[in-house]
Design a binder for these strands. Sequence first.
DNA 1: CTGTTAGCGCCTTCAG
DNA 2: CTGAAGGCGCTAACAG
Lengths: 321, 321
Amino acid sequence: MATIKDVAKEAGVGVGTVSRALSGNGCVSDDAKSRIDAAVKKLDFVPNQSARNLKTQSSAAVAISVPTVKHPFFAKIIYCVEDCLSKSGYRLIVVNSQDEKSKEIKILEMIRQARVDGIIFITHHAHEYIDGNMPIVSVDRHLGNGVPFVTSNNYDASRKAVEYLIERGATKIGCICGSTKVESEVSMRYKAYCDVMEERGLERYLEVADFKHGEEMDVTDRYFKKYPDVDGLFVGSDMLANAAYHSAMLLGKNVPRDLQIVGFDGVMDEWCPHPKLTTVTQNIEAIAEAAVTVLFKRIRGEKCENKTVIDAALKIGETTR
Amino acid sequence: MATIKDVAKEAGVGVGTVSRALSGNGCVSDDAKSRIDAAVKKLDFVPNQSARNLKTQSSAAVAISVPTVKHPFFAKIIYCVEDCLSKSGYRLIVVNSQDEKSKEIKILEMIRQARVDGIIFITHHAHEYIDGNMPIVSVDRHLGNGVPFVTSNNYDASRKAVEYLIERGATKIGCICGSTKVESEVSMRYKAYCDVMEERGLERYLEVADFKHGEEMDVTDRYFKKYPDVDGLFVGSDMLANAAYHSAMLLGKNVPRDLQIVGFDGVMDEWCPHPKLTTVTQNIEAIAEAAVTVLFKRIRGEKCENKTVIDAALKIGETTR
DNA sequence: CTGTTAGCGCCTTCAG
DNA sequence: CTGAAGGCGCTAACAG
């Protein structure tokens, strides 16, 4: 495999000139440049990234840690982040933490091993010793210690969702959300529900459920047993909303006639063509882009906003009237 | 940040000894070892992976290229591959080719830049200049030139699926499959259907559709318009089978009473809790594990089997009687 | 068993 | 604008 030295010899110049020509840092005469290009082509030269990394103390790679890729929301985040990074010549290393703290700690190690320049960290755990000085950004979670994060405007969007149910004539409005172990913007979703209910003097039918991926329909079945006659339901995620739809249908409820459902995320439509949920659609492309932008700032050591909010919009589907 | 040199000085030994102690190659006295351990701890030393990579000409990283992570099958493959690799201390770089050949070519470049030790390549395109000497393995695709690949026993499993429909009383049995641009094991799915139909002297209602992710229901709607009275349907993927289910239901067909459906993949249940498809379940954990095993052999330059077949089993759900 | 040494391939001053 | 030279941090071969 040819090295920069071979190219230099072939082109009849010094290695420094080749390096400058290839990296674009510093000036090189057109004459030298064209001879170098020819030599590169002739020798089929490709710069060795490891050597570059060692010298520049960076890796042109970013890691993302998610509980599991096997979840539509995370899959889409990863898709968008990768798309964004590849445009800047960066690579994305994906790690499934499987919600295990020990695996997440390994990921944190990667920063120190110079295997990655930064980390996008989506976790349910608290990590004491990470702080805002490290090249880390989170999504939807407060990792604390000044770690910047990107999130949708969960509270406002959720209020709109609940108010929409009222507007469409629902009178007994319930809410199901997943619980979160760390302080998360996601909890704003049921907070908004509670606030709206309180303001309107309406009774609450709230369930904050602790469940695993795959147990969604158990949760919704249980909910309908407990509150059989709600006619409006705001659900904290589309996976759960989809489960609620099927639970309700199997119980003989007609959606949206007997029960209207509004979800949150806007990711299910890619996987399940039916039903088309009325749902708060997060702008995941924008979230990913913002996360990458903030992360790059952190990598360069620049100051950056601690919290970035991306607008989410209510999208009307077939589960409301 | 401490280097191996600092550790050596602190421990009062040479750098070679430290290197041997840390990597485990070569013998080190217990005395030296304990002093080195202490120094490592005191200095909070972490070996620099870039330097290691440069020296060893490897990266302890593998890349996987898929059309999109936003597909349950690929998401699960990635999940399993990552799990497998992380146990061997390897990292996984994920690339969405978005079905674009140009992006795939970039990925191939990564190998040469020594950024990755190997590639798991899942593509719809032909790449002329890759061959069995490169550390590449594919899934379900014949990349040709001796590139090894891992696949389910598509043909046999599909035959069983079609025969199961017959067994359950279906008489007008149709089949919908996605088309593939390269020679792919996936085409065995409709080949099996055709063979069974032929052997039994039954008429075929086959549609090999060329469509994009997201257009599934267009395909199935069209299919039912063309063949309104099939009462058994073998579908080449779960995404499509799910779409067929919803298409049929919206047309007033009762599944499984009027129409029985068998899918292929076994991945939808994680994303959509309903309906529980009767489907040929691929053993993706085993596929991923085999792909990694074969890839490691290729990386070490060992000979390996060109084709690895993993058993897929028919799983009975609620879309057959 | 151990210290020393010579690079891995590249980038980046530094004189010219 | 350019060539030469000195590392980046680590491993592996070598002579003790």
